[in-house]
């Protein structure tokens, strides 16, 4: 099913899955993959493809790292002078109960933390200098919320410079999240397909029943849609992406990812709804990632409202697709 992606991306994806699956030793798996070095050259399509393939692997392997924050921080790192990977961005989100919050993914011990405050520039602070509270969600994600109030801290990156960096950071972050959602969806789909082939009822595997087969076929169709869209998005440069393209990719990922998890859960049956089965990790990860940098629901609605108001065409032009021989 990985037939639409580039060969080099494919190879990196396989390598990343293997490395993340290997028993954790003292070595950082991202170090072992040479992943941090990729951050400096994201303008190169092949490098970008390899760097982003990590997220799909993280989804499949239920791995957790600071890669997303490092990727999002990268457009700011040129302004702050941080080496790639030494600056990790927190991700802003709105809590209906507690207002604007910042969360960090992965173990940020010892890292410099970038907290972006749209309208007021971004501040860089040592992660060890502020208070972080662990957030317990399933999905084998390491998540912390920033407790320290940094709203009044002086800006390290002024708003005039932070604006353009923010746009690029969000775009990269949304694409990475979409790929991690794809990986997690693929993870649960693999489990459900194996379950359908072996679980017997009425004297035969449930995968012989058309109702079950169609649920899984739809899930695979949604995976292929998401894979195709992320493949195109990886090939787009900052100037060739049509307006709101990153939001389309992220919204599609959240929508399809949730739909895939619902269908695989239906096939897995009650065992898929237990804590001992891995499905809930994939499912919860998809829910958590959907909620970051714009949920599918809010982005989809905003996209429709924007199209209606502007009458702009959000399609990637054929001429743009044809320019990229790898697309």
């Amino acid at each position: 099913m990985t037939s639409t992606i580039e060969q080099t991306d494919h190879e990196f994806l396989d390598a990343a899955c293997r490395t993340l699956r290997a028993p954790a030793g003292d070595t950082d798996p991202l170090d072992a993959l040479g992943w941090w070095d990729l951050l400096a050259d994201l303008a190169d399509r092949d490098v970008r493809g390899a760097a982003l393939a990590l997220f799909r692997a993280q989804g499949r392997e239920l791995a957790s790292s600071t890669a997303l924050g490092a990727l999002i921080a990268q457009p700011f790192a040129a302004l702050t002078g941080h080496a790639p990977g030494s600056l990790v961005a927190a991700i802003g989100r709105h809590s209906p109960r507690r207002g604007e919050r910042q969360v960090v993914l992965g173990d940020v011990t010892g890292a410099a933390l970038l907290v972006d405050r749209p309208g007021h520039g971004a501040v860089v602070v040592g992660a060890d200098e502020i208070e972080l509270a662990p957030v317990t969600v399933p999905g084998q994600l390491v998540v912390h919320e920033v407790v320290t109030d940094l709203a009044g801290a002086p800006a390290t990156v002024e708003e005039s410079q932070a604006g353009p960096a923010r746009a690029r950071a969000r775009s990269l972050g949304r694409l990475a999240l979409a790929l991690e959602i794809l990986g997690a969806a693929e993870g649960t789909l693999t489990l459900a397909v194996a379950h359908a082939a072996t679980r017997e009822q009425f004297g035969k595997p449930i995968g012989t029943f058309q109702a079950v087969r169609h649920l899984l076929a739809w899930a695979q169709t949604d995976c292929v849609a998401l894979e195709s869209v992320t493949t195109v998005a990886i090939g787009l440069d900052e100037d060739s992406a049509p307006p709101r393209h990153d939001e389309i990719v992220k919204a599609l990922a959240g929508r399809n990812g949730r739909r895939i998890c619902e269908r695989t859960l239906q096939v897995l049956g009650a065992i898929g709804f237990t804590s001992e089965h891995s499905h809930h990790h994939f499912h919860s990860r998809v829910l958590a990632l959907d909620a970051l940098l714009g949920s599918s629901t809010e982005l989809t609605y905003a996209l429709g409202a924007w199209a209606r108001a502007t009458h702009l065409d959000p399609a990637v032009r054929a001429s743009v697709l044809l320019r990229d021989p790898a697309a």
Partner: peptide
């Protein structure tokens, strides 16, 4: 277009992006 249809419109644009990418492949 009516505002009440915005979510449906957004949804359609997602599906169009999907078929555009997969048919281009």
């Amino acid at each position: 277009g009516e505002p009440a249809g915005d979510a449906l419109l957004g949804d359609a644009l997602l599906d169009l992006a999907a078929v555009r990418a997969s048919s281009y492949a």
